[in-house]
Design a protein around this nucleic acid. Structure first.
Lengths: 64, 64
DNA sequence: ACTAAATGTCAAATATAAATTACATTTTGT
DNA sequence: ACAAAATGTAATTTATATTTGACATTTAGT
């Protein structure tokens, strides 16, 4: 299951995977893997991504 | 920074750390560490804890 | 069409979440 | 006060997230 919400939020914010990776302090590959799905990032990283994209955990990582 | 919200939600749900650990499939120590703070759980585990306690990610793990 | 930027993905190494075992302390019930 | 359950922590090991380096493909700009 891909993380479309995150990808959409990132594109709306007009940042590349590489730029987002820089901002949150991980590598581009990690960002790519999270968007690609089948990945289990740490809470801290999720929160940093949310802050970078001006979203909340529920916005990007919660499925009702 | 302790995770008070999670501890409160767990106590409201009337489950022990051990019982919650069973439900979400980790050890009691892991649950304890998360509540104690200075820990960085995986997203998957956070989500499982939320579901077990009938809460959302924002309820338990998001700080405005 | 061409080029550069962005993306998808892989293998191997490193960092760290989570397990395990164990023990001390605190809380709760009787 | 006592016993049992629940909690707080620590050291070591194991599983896995993340890094690193690299290469192929796709997308966007000219």
């Amino acid at each position: 299951m891909k993380n479309k919400k995150m990808k959409i939020a990132r594109i709306e914010a007009e940042v590349s995977q590489e730029r987002l990776a820089e901002i949150v302090g991980v590598t581009r590959q990690t960002v790519n893997l999270i968007e690609s799905g089948n990945y289990n990032p740490s809470l801290k990283l999720c929160i940093e991504i949310c802050r970078a994209l001006n979203k909340t955990l529920n916005d990007l990582f919660w499925e009702e």
